[in-house]
Structures are given as C-alpha cells and as structure tokens.
Computed example of a mutant assay.
Amino acid sequence: MTFPELAMSEIYQARLARVVAYIHDHLDDELDLNRLADVACLSPYHWHRIYHGFYGETAAATVRRLRLHRAANELVRGSGAIDTIAERAGYSSVQAFSRAFQASYRMAPGRFRSEGGASMFVSLDSSDSIRSGGMAMHQVEIRSQGPFTVAAMEHRGSYMNIGRAFEMLFHWLATRGLVDPRARSLGIYFDDPAAVAEDELRSMACCELFEPDAVKFEAPVSRVEVAGGEFAVLTHVGPYAQLCFAYQWLYGEWLPKSGRETGDAPVFEVYVNDPRGTAPADLVTEIWVQLRAVG
C-alpha cells in the first residue's frame, strides 16, 4: 500500500470510528442513516457501503448486535420483564424480539434466562460434569505465559460496555498501521462486579504488541506490561453475557479443589474470535487467572 493509499485508509478509519462511538453512545436512539453520514463526514449515498466494506456488517447490523448483546446481559443479570427488554432492544413485540434473539443466540429469551447461564456450570462433584457438554464448559488448562506488552485503553463502568473502548483502541492502532493479525485482543479486569458499584468498575481494552518499543504512545492509549507466570485458563464457548457464570464456577468450584492459589496479577480475558462475524453461541473466550508459584 502506497503512502497516499495508507493516508486515505486512515482517514476512513477515523471517520468510521466516530460512527461506531456514536452508535455505542446512542444505542437507545432511532438509527438515522443521514445523521450517521454526518458523523462520518461522508456522503449519505456512499458512507454505508464504506462502513460495510470496512467492518463486514452494516451499521444497522451493528446496532442490532449491540442491542441484543445488552438484552442478553439484562436477561441473565436482571429480573426485568421480557417485553420491557424487547422494547429497549428496539422491537415492537416480544414475538419479533424472540425471533431475532433465537436467530442470534440459538435459544429463546425465556430459556436463555432460565437455562443459558448457571445451569451450564455444574458442581465438580456432579455426574453431569463428566458429560461431553460438561467437559466443554469445564475445560481448564494450566499454561505458562511469559510477560508481554499491550496497547491499552482504560474503561470505567459496566464490563459489558467495554466494546466501545475496543473500537477506539483499534481505531488508534489502525491509524498508525499497528494492527497485526497475529495479535491477541484481551480485556484486563481489576474489580469484582459483585463487590464494586457498576459505574466504578475498572478495566482495560488491550491489544498485544510485538514491537512495543517502536510505538509512540499517546493518550488515551498507554503501554501496559502484562505479568507472566503460570495461569489457569478456562475456555468458554458462548455469549459474553454468560461469562459471569464461568467466573463463579472457576473461582467457586475449580479453584478451591485445585490445590492452587491465585497470583497477584488481575484476571484477563482473551477474545479468540470477532463478535462482528461470529454468532454469540460460537464466541470463544479464554479467562486467564494467574496462579501463585508452587513450592
């Protein structure tokens, strides 16, 4: 790619990043394509094609995906009526919401609320844990990992809303030609949502760097060193809204029976595939918990 081509690509990245940030900040508003064109500073006749070309989904699909992601979290963590959740997600009827949710999550909203979370993580003493499904959900490996460096953007608030920080981080990386397909995307989480108020939760959206010394860091992106060591790694397959149950099982079931203690580093998650092109049921997330050295 020549310099002019790279410069124009960076301009498009910057403009479309503004659109993504606007969508995250106005998720409850009506999707106005002309308004999004204004945010992108692009022609209303062409900007949506450019967006689709860059992100592999339309702006409408982005809004739908983010609203369903929020709805899944509300189903798992809250007790609100399904019709209220459906309306907030932009659907005029529970039936329409149920069809859309079923298509994305392969499970009706009511069933997702009752069966899509805690029931997938049974006690280690239960015979259910030896079934193939149980083994998939209980896949914990002990892995060694050396220290590594990431580019990080801080996020404050609900962990389920860290997606906006990731969008901004990858915009920052893209405009500097630093996106590397080998790099892992990860989130570092400092607080327990059960013990800290939601608006005070601290986290970081991160991307692995292979040549960090060559990067000139500028706010709001910083250089962060991730500690190495031995880790318990739980691989979770399914919607991000179910991760809270994976944590409960990992800390409440596996850890006490493992004979190991946690290290001092915060937990982090590695996102193996991209939610833009992956059904929620197929999302693969690795939860990495540092372990104290034995002996």
Results as ranks from 00 to 15, higher is better:
T235I: 10
Y240S: 01
F245R: 01
G238D: 08
F231A: 07
P256W: 06
W249L: 00
L243I: 10
G229A: 11
Q242Y: 09
L234N: 04
G238H: 07
L243M: 07
G252E: 07
Y247E: 12
G229C: 12
L243Q: 11
F245T: 00
G238F: 11
F231M: 03
K257E: 12
Y251N: 05
Q248P: 06
V233H: 08
L250K: 09
Q248V: 11
F231Y: 13
H236V: 14
G252C: 06
A246K: 00
P256H: 05
Y247Q: 11
T235S: 15
Y240L: 03
L250G: 08
L250V: 07
L234I: 03
G252R: 09
K257I: 03
A241R: 06
E230N: 14
V233T: 02
G229F: 11
V237F: 03
L255W: 13
T235Y: 14
E253V: 11
A241Y: 07
G259D: 10
S258T: 01
S258L: 00
A246I: 00
P256G: 00
S258I: 02
Y247N: 13
A232K: 05
Q248I: 10
L255T: 07
T235V: 10
P239L: 01
G259N: 11
A241V: 03
V233L: 02
G238S: 11
G252Q: 09
Y247H: 15
L250E: 09
W254P: 04
Y240M: 02
L255H: 09
Q248C: 12
Y240T: 05
P256M: 01
L243E: 11
W254T: 10
A241Q: 04
E230Y: 10
E253M: 10
T235L: 13
Y251S: 02
F231P: 03
A232I: 01
Q242P: 04
F245W: 13
A241I: 04
P256N: 06
G228E: 01
P239Y: 03
T235P: 12
S258R: 03
Q248K: 15
Q242M: 14
S258Y: 10
E230L: 15
C244M: 15
G259P: 08
W249H: 04
Q242N: 13
